[in-house]
Amino acid sequence: MALTREQIASIAALARLDLSSAEIPVYQDSLSRILDFVGALDRADTTDVAPMSHPLPGLSQRLRPDVVTEQDRHEQYQANAPQVAAGLYLVPKVIE
């Protein structure tokens, strides 16, 4: 399954990854190869087989009591942020 340049560009756009024009053919080649490789899955007969999304079947979600356990630590958490002001994380102007 060979992916086109346009397909790679649109996947990269969806994943918000900036790719240089030199990178595109590299990923075109390797993603195509990976898709060919995983194409082997078609060989398996999965009629009536349920998808398995957790490795431990039969477990169910535990529920947490509705209790507030957190305090305001925004200054500590924002120490890692590239740009903040007045407690807000800043990004370039978003126009809706």
């Binding site: 947490r64 509705d66 507030v68 356990t69 957190e70 305001d72 958490y77 407690g87």
Partner: peptide, 24 residues
């Protein structure tokens, strides 16, 4: 109208200072 958030123990009260009720 829960006290805490759906997946964390942060408060849900309205009107807190920015990001004061946002935990990890």
């Amino acid at each position: 109208a829960t006290r805490s958030k759906i997946f964390s123990g942060s408060a849900t009260a309205y009107g807190a200072p920015p990001n004061a009720q946002a935990n990890l």
